[in-house]
Design a protein around this nucleic acid. Sequence first.
DNA 1: CCAGCTACTCGGTATTGCTAAATACCGGTA
DNA 2: TACCGGTATTTAGCAATACCGAGTAGCTGG
Lengths: 109, 109
Amino acid sequence: MGKQVTEMLKGTLEGIVLAILSARPAYGYEITAWLRDQGFSDIAEGTIYALLVRIEQRGLVDVEKVPSEKGPPRKVYSLNAQGREYLEEFWKTWSFLADRLEQLREGGK
Amino acid sequence: MGKQVTEMLKGTLEGIVLAILSARPAYGYEITAWLRDQGFSDIAEGTIYALLVRIEQRGLVDVEKVPSEKGPPRKVYSLNAQGREYLEEFWKTWSFLADRLEQLREGGK
DNA sequence: CCAGCTACTCGGTATTGCTAAATACCGGTA
DNA sequence: TACCGGTATTTAGCAATACCGAGTAGCTGG
């Protein structure tokens, strides 16, 4: 994609990852692959890992190291209660923004 | 609002301002006031001015200095052809992101 | 034993929004 | 006159987050 999406992801990517984790536990490599599959073609690996470290440090997720058959051990993240609360907040913020944008788009026609 | 919105605005605020300008020419102070009115309670003045300078330098807007009855002259910005094109791109990017988020929200229920 | 996939880490850069303070023009008021 | 408040813009420094590139490490198949 382009630079536009990169800047737009700032602030939303975190919510996206939390939303993924709210459905099921997952690890970094898996999340990156899934996102690319969904059309986020140029999400950088490093970005996801850094983000995971951040949300772990903020106590939004629990981590468990799980051995992999295909490589080094995976760090499997799962959303905890605090993370769920934070995700709720995220959705509210997102809705606010999306509503404003929708209005602007309507008005601009 | 909070930090969440601040980070989320990165990348979207530019589109928001361009969308505003697509409806009618406007100047910085006016845009800031309007945004605050719309619920963006803590948009910083400086942020809007800096953003306007950026989009001007990228050639997305035309500028005209207009005397004000109530203070120093206003810098009135209006969207030009290139800006309109860029705004189109912005809406596409936004739609992509909004669609993905909507799916995630659905799935998470 | 090496190539290639899996899986994670780290250092440096760019972009963008916020903070805070300064500058400037105007009207009204003490 | 002198000052205050509202209008209007500019600027310097800071913080957060995504990207880039390179490195580490485990496993499997040729």
